[in-house]
Design a protein around this nucleic acid. Sequence first.
DNA 1: CGGTAACTTGACTTAAATCAACAATAGTGG
DNA 2: CCACTATTGTTGATTTAAGTCAAGTTACCG
Lengths: 257, 257
Amino acid sequence: MTASFDVRDFRDPADTESLRPSDYPSQLCRVCDINRETSLCSRLTKDEFTRVLSMRDQFQFPPLHAIFREGDKAGHVYALTSGSVKLYKLLSDGRRQIVGFLFPGDVFGLANSLGYPYSAETLNQASACRFPQRMLGGQTREVAPMLERRMFDLAVRELMRAHEQMLWLGRKTALERLASFLASLARRATERGLPESPVALPMSRSDIADFLGLTIETVSRTFTHLKKLSVIVIPDNSHVVLNNLPLLSKLAEGGGD
Amino acid sequence: MTASFDVRDFRDPADTESLRPSDYPSQLCRVCDINRETSLCSRLTKDEFTRVLSMRDQFQFPPLHAIFREGDKAGHVYALTSGSVKLYKLLSDGRRQIVGFLFPGDVFGLANSLGYPYSAETLNQASACRFPQRMLGGQTREVAPMLERRMFDLAVRELMRAHEQMLWLGRKTALERLASFLASLARRATERGLPESPVALPMSRSDIADFLGLTIETVSRTFTHLKKLSVIVIPDNSHVVLNNLPLLSKLAEGGGD
DNA sequence: CGGTAACTTGACTTAAATCAACAATAGTGG
DNA sequence: CCACTATTGTTGATTTAAGTCAAGTTACCG
């Protein structure tokens, strides 16, 4: 349960494509992230970036790959650079709660000495950048102060998302939860520069159910309900067209009437 | 809705009691926290501590005092030094989800530019230490690198607690949620050097219900259920004696059978 | 004391879970 | 390219855990 990586998954872009000065940090952070404004490595100085480069590992994972499991000794923090990942916790009898879906630009794997607090698994082909956790905060803080700052900001963002999901799970109906989920996916897509509709659903209905604290049957019925309200169209099971985002948002907040 | 502090609440111990060198940082951090090992200000150097002192404000709040409200412009981070605080989010129709109960040593108020993501309210008489958020991470990072480190660690702890609560809310029964809650309070009490039983419940049944995603009636019935199982005794409504912590923990994980 | 707020208990309802087919989709190999 | 199969998703019938409604009871506070 401790080995999380196949050697064959290892890829290092720096081995194959040389990094030109113009690649960083002004426009795209080609190695460890997507977009200068939102990425973990954004706003690093050239020196910082160079030092970070020397400490990070780059990985590619196949679909449904277990990156690490809950309880594994935690030594690294990950920044997702492409694809999607789910984070989940299990009860001994198999009940599962997905605590987050991650998209490029998100970080995961923050942990204390008790090990990772959740399992992380890819939904599709994905790549991620891995940093030693001791690089953050320790005596080696001179390595990249701005990286720590960015990591902190992203951790705060994750915490806010977690609080939002607690409201969904504790106090919203099935319809409100699914509407909130779709609206949230749309908003996060726009933050990555993608259109807000159609929304991609790289996860299964079962994953959505375990994320929203529902059963797959209820998720399916609720999708049908939203279809009948003409709020969404489902061209195929991994895409949703949002026809009426204002109404979707209203439903998400309980304005269903 | 923006003013969060009464001037009369302001107290600055440094105004009334002078700080002797022996007070920091070796034993107790008398000003901004409880216990050197677990506090925000633990492990600061003398210089760091002095600089932090000059930037922090110390507050005392009466019971049921609103420290800030969801959406307020966020400029400060708080470290609770005594008493208890609840953090909650509201829906427009009044439904409420409490996203955390805080005890001495916990931090709250981390936010991004959208303002505080939750409201914060005291449960009882409480005191807290307030830092400007820009003190963390910005250009002024030289102020107290170790403070940032501590803040990051405490944010990670909050995130882990949030993930745990998501599992409770999404996948546990009423009995499992209440058992988890009591076990968690007991564990956190021991972390603060208090006995694990009796557990203090500074919050109302209504607060517990809104924390666990239940109604007050269900919370009440479930307390009765735990009493009948002889797992707990309730000497008064703000204290619970844990008679059988192993069984309580088993019930919390679904080992009810 | 008296009155209000907080909590408990009981009767009944309901949203979502469970159980059970059934339909669509995606692979797989001939 | 098309059966064949397995997986995934949908729909319907029924059950159930928790919610709602309605009394009671206890604790708190002036």
